[in-house]
Simulated assay, not measured.
Amino acid sequence: MTRAAPSCPICGQPVNQTFRPFCSRRCADVDLGRWFSEDYRVPTAEPAPPTEQEN
């Protein structure tokens, strides 16, 4: 059984082991920029704020 070569999640090009899981420094920087601009978010279950009746 052969494995398919992994592809860059940003552009789809073959992965370069130096920048894994990306193909280049550019794609790694694009991904980092998306985290900084909050394009990616980790879902959380935040509790609702307390109401005055609960105090």
Rank of each mutant, 00 (worst) to 15 (best):
M1D: 08
M1T: 05
A5E: 15
A5G: 09
S7W: 00
P9T: 07
I10W: 02
I10E: 13
I10M: 09
C11E: 06
G12N: 11
G12E: 14
G12K: 14
G12V: 09
V15K: 13
V15R: 12
N16T: 12
N16C: 12
N16L: 11
N16W: 11
N16E: 12
Q17M: 14
Q17K: 15
Q17T: 15
T18F: 14
R20Q: 10
F22C: 04
C23F: 10
C23E: 10
S24R: 15
S24T: 15
R25I: 00
R25G: 00
R26F: 10
R26K: 15
C27F: 03
A28T: 09
A28I: 02
D29C: 00
D29K: 01
V30T: 14
D31N: 14
L32Q: 11
R34S: 10
R34C: 06
W35I: 00
W35T: 01
F36H: 03
F36M: 04
F36K: 13
S37K: 13
S37T: 13
E38V: 02
E38S: 03
D39Y: 07
D39S: 06
D39H: 07
Y40K: 05
Y40L: 01
R41D: 09
V42R: 10
V42S: 02
P43K: 04
T44N: 14
T44S: 15
E46H: 11
P47T: 12
P47E: 15
P49S: 00
P49N: 04
E52Y: 03
E52Q: 10
Q53M: 05
Q53T: 07
N55A: 05
N55S: 05
